[in-house]
Design a protein around this nucleic acid. Structure first.
Lengths: 207, 207
DNA sequence: CATTGTCTAGTTGTCATACAATCTGCCTAC
DNA sequence: GTAGGCAGATTGTATGACAACTAGACAATG
């Protein structure tokens, strides 16, 4: 078996860089991103910029209309609700599929989350949180589930960054995910599914 | 409210054309699609071709590796299973969300399906079938559900074209979908969900 | 005053061309 | 027969250009 080592393409690198800046909040929602400007800023050709923008548009981080500059997406409360609406069945599918299994990668992410110092930036918490869910999805071993979840992941993360108030105490977040992993690892499918439901309900029913 | 009328872009038109040819089976799985060739064939520039290919790759119709021509995806049985695996929760979500509603567009698609002459090409059957499911998804009104389903739709369709043997008698297909729409329109969420499960189980448990 | 027509500047959509990096297949040498 | 290397083909990226389109300002008209 050959290991896929990832030669970075210019588009990929640029997409990564932009994604990081958007997710960190450095580029505010609504900001326009003219292609020329990015081309000059990063020293790449405009077609390269276009492809990178297309990637981010597909991820839901940017929006683009004909003959108008790409804009950083504004995430409304309605968007977050919609996001949860479609995320739920996928998370449930993940949990029931994994029922009875313990996912090492997810446990590791939880451990890193728990080990974060109290004054660590919220964005790191979010990053580990996403890594945990991502690990679960990958463990299922369904390429399409992974693709679908990936599409939602970036947008979810963008939303989380803006909703940090939901979890005033970070320990609650850690504990909740501990329960989730336990329920998946221990119980039959039904238990795992309920744990997911409880988890998703917590921060989202009210705002 | 502004109605979105969409002027066709060159990329969009090219993507449509290629999609049609792939889905109709005119271009066999495994066929390579060199960019130059397409560029010359359709009389558009290579960057335009690249963007169009990127769209189809995202839809799962084509696969591309670095420095290799794009290929029409081969749909294995494992792929179809995986496809159903992720489609199921989304279809269930759709059905439960719509429970108690009758979707005019879906009924119309069903009617068109029933009206197809016995010797109509199978691909038309497939097209109306997809239109029906698409109509249901759209009726839910969740932009993200629509996006996710759209990603799976093209691939599903590619698979259906190769599995026409599942439904030797077309009337069965029509009847089954009639039942599905009825169950959704009539019953509470649970009934609708079961109807979906029954529908998806039929052609797929065995092959 | 409100509406409409027009102009201008800026940005994107597309094209043409070119070159470097890389893969593939074939050919040669051992 | 296998290893090594060469040539052709194809993609990845860059450069430059022009047409199409949008938005905003401004003048003309009712």
């Amino acid at each position: 078996m050959t290991l896929p080592l990832h030669p970075v393409s210019a588009v990929g690198a640029l997409a990564d860089a932009l994604r990081r800046r958007v997710l960190s909040g450095e580029i505010a929602p609504g900001t326009t991103l003219p292609e020329q400007e990015l081309s000059a800023l990063y020293g790449v050709a405009r077609p390269t910029v276009r492809e990178a923008l297309a990637v981010l548009v597909h991820e839901g981080l940017l929006r683009r209309e004909r003959h108008r500059s790409a804009q950083v997406a504004e995430v409304t409360v309605a968007d977050l609700d919609d996001l949860m609406f479609v995320r739920r069945p996928l998370e449930e599918l993940t949990a029931t599929s994994l029922a009875g299994r313990r996912v090492g990668e997810a446990d590791a992410a939880l451990a890193r989350m728990a080990a974060l110092p109290a004054d660590a930036p919220w964005s790191e918490m979010v990053a580990e949180h996403m890594a945990l869910h991502q690990a679960l999805v990958v463990a299922v071993g369904s390429p399409r589930l992974e693709r679908l979840y990936g599409m939602l992941a970036a947008e979810t993360r963008l939303g989380l960054v803006r909703l940090r108030e939901v979890y005033p105490d970070r320990h609650v977040l850690v504990a909740e995910h501990g329960n989730l992993l336990d329920a998946i690892g221990r119980g039959p499918g039904e238990v795992a599914r309920e744990a997911v439901a409880a988890h998703l309900d917590h921060g989202w029913g009210d705002h």
